[in-house]
Nucleic acid binder design. Structure first.
Lengths: 196, 196
DNA sequence: GTCTATACCAAGATAGAC
DNA sequence: GTCTATCTTGGTATAGAC
């Protein structure tokens, strides 16, 4: 059992974690290997990191791949729980809540997808698959309503991050309740229905 | 009238425009002055740009300031138009439409605010002020609904950019109609009202 | 107002000692 | 696995010729 088996993997993991942070903060071009080394505790400027990853591109790829795997596994696990809720309204709220928490938990992936989506082609597809809504309440023409809900959750997450507090002072629970209420099916009414 | 009065301003404007692109694409740390020079048609690597702006920070500041001024002027001009629409539902749709178009038109500011908001403190405040909803339909407790609408518009814009097509295939008009319909006040119903 | 030349520095990456 | 040393490249910035 070499030293690689002891601390080696551990350092690798710490590198990947720090790399996700730096890439998410500064983007690919803005991120520097030296900064990653610094955060991990390695001497910056030396090629210490290159013993683990041959290049900056390889580092990004590995960091993203690990994070996507985590994300996918976690969301799929939570998915089974969600399907148990019988009441459709309650279930929708739980689904929205779950999506919002996923976005928060995997904010680094989220931002990377936003800013570096072109650089890592597999990234977008993977994250969309992971974040995709697990259930569509009625299997009808609710796709526009679903889009509104998902967009609202994404916007709420990002805007809250930007403001450094719940977006416009509207807390998570109230936001979710309002969203659930807004996207609840309703009887037809006047001229303006959803589909023109 | 020196040469500065002829082509000088013009070059300056082109620099600011290219700078907005580069900053929005690569972030502040990732952006390079050389790249801006390249796009403007100046020799890259030489300090040609420094005759116009003393430093990278100054360049960012100037570019942002000009763009924010434009944004503010334009949105305020459109605001007066919006208030004319009498029908509250129609007016809300127009307001949403306007906000979505503002986000698109000033996407570079939008992304900069998203990623570099900490670096330019005045940036966030200025953009929020410009994008802020000009009318709140009933002056009551609709702030949660407003937050949902604004978040939905922001999310729709960003997600559409990410997917490179209307988000999840839902076109702008259908999205707006659905959003207007969703955020239309409705009579109280069962247990789950907006405010817990 | 733009270029050449240049100083200075930081980054990505490699080779090799420990 | 980590460090020292080193190479190469490219960026920020300044001084000065045209």
């Amino acid at each position: 059992m070499t030293t690689a088996a002891r601390g080696g993997q551990k350092t690798r993991e710490r590198i990947l974690d720090a790399a996700m942070d730096v890439f998410a903060e500064d983007g690919f071009t803005g991120a520097t290997i030296s900064e990653v080394e610094r955060r991990v505790g390695l001497a910056a400027g030396t090629g210490s990191l290159h013993r683990h990853f041959p290049s900056k591109e390889a580092l990004l790829e590995a960091a993203v791949e690990r994070e996507v795997s985590r994300c996918r596994a976690e969301t799929e696990a939570a998915r089974e729980e969600l399907l148990r809720a019988a009441d459709p309204v309650e279930r929708r709220k739980q689904v929205y809540e779950q999506m919002l928490h996923d976005m928060r938990r995997y904010d680094r992936l989220f931002r990377l997808m936003l800013n570096e989506g072109d650089r890592v082609p597999a990234l977008r597809q993977a994250i969309w698959a992971a974040l995709q809504r697990p259930v569509r309440s009625p299997p009808e023409e609710r796709d526009a309503v679903d889009a509104v809900a998902m967009a609202a959750l994404g916007g709420y997450h990002l805007f809250s991050m930007m403001q450094g507090r719940p977006f416009n002072g509207v807390g998570e629970d109230r936001f979710l309740n309002t969203l659930v209420e807004s996207t609840r099916p309703r009887r037809r009414h006047g001229a303006s229905t959803a589909r023109p």
